[in-house]
């Protein structure tokens, strides 16, 4: 390992890592915001909407992130929406994450005793209040650890955005490799950065698993 060479390129990698971190976080926030109301659908009884959502979820989980990214990349301009590159990536990554997030939320919600619905319903609480203040808080115990381990997958997934030339960590690493042709130093340090970021998430998952498993 040539440390001088590494130090020379490290700032660029770290700047790109910042983009990766940002992209991961934004994808997580957006997909969770969208999935939260969707996950509720059909939990009590099946409806046409819930069946449609289940089918859509299966479809989205069956298609590679790369395909979704390309579809957004080529598709949005066709329907007259022209977004900056980073926003395009964010839309694509969010779309591919929603279905998984929805499944995680549903598994958590299903773990809540159904008597809770009846009790809350009997009090005459409005639906959003039942879900938001009664059911979801109880489901967090199950949701948080799996949500965080899924976050590691989202982190990994952002690297796919490099293929549509978003300047995140993998793309920048590739760029440096093609300029210097010293792939191992660059790629191994890139892997190390991903692992470092992933470790933060894993640590959070571990802490939360301990904290949330004892309500």
């Amino acid at each position: 390992m040539d440390f001088a060479f590494l130090m020379e390129n490290l700032p660029a990698l770290l700047r790109a890592a910042w983009t990766t971190a940002w992209l991961t976080l934004a994808t997580l926030v957006l997909s969770t915001l969208i999935a939260t109301p969707l996950a509720v659908s059909g939990l009590r009884r099946e409806t046409p909407l819930s069946r449609g959502l289940a089918a859509a979820s299966t479809l989205m989980r069956s298609i590679p992130t790369l395909v979704i990214l390309f579809l957004v990349y080529y598709g949005l301009p066709q329907i007259g929406i022209v977004l900056p590159a980073l926003a395009t990536a964010l839309v694509g990554l969010t779309l591919s994450a929603i279905a998984y997030t929805m499944e995680i939320l549903r598994a958590g919600l299903k773990s809540v005793d159904s008597g809770q619905y009846e009790a809350a319903g009997a009090l005459g609480l409005p639906a959003w209040l039942i879900w938001g203040r009664v059911i979801y808080p109880q489901a967090l115990r199950v949701i948080v650890p799996t949500w965080l381990s899924n976050a590691t997958l989202v982190l990994k997934g952002t690297s796919v955005a490099s293929i549509i030339t978003i300047p995140e960590l993998t793309a920048i690493a590739n760029e440096i490799v093609s300029e210097t042709y010293r792939p191992f130093e660059i790629l191994l340090s890139t892997a190390a950065i991903y692992i470092l970021l992933g470790s933060v998430l894993a640590l959070a998952a571990r802490v939360s698993a301990r904290r949330w498993s004892h309500p």
Partner: peptide, 22 residues
């Protein structure tokens, strides 16, 4: 297992690719 699952597949693909040429 942790390293293999946390490193993005793309990075591993590139490593294998450059490794094979080198």
């Amino acid at each position: 297992s942790w390293l293999a699952q946390t490193t993005p597949p793309l990075i591993l693909l590139f490593l294998a690719f450059y490794g094979s040429t080198m």
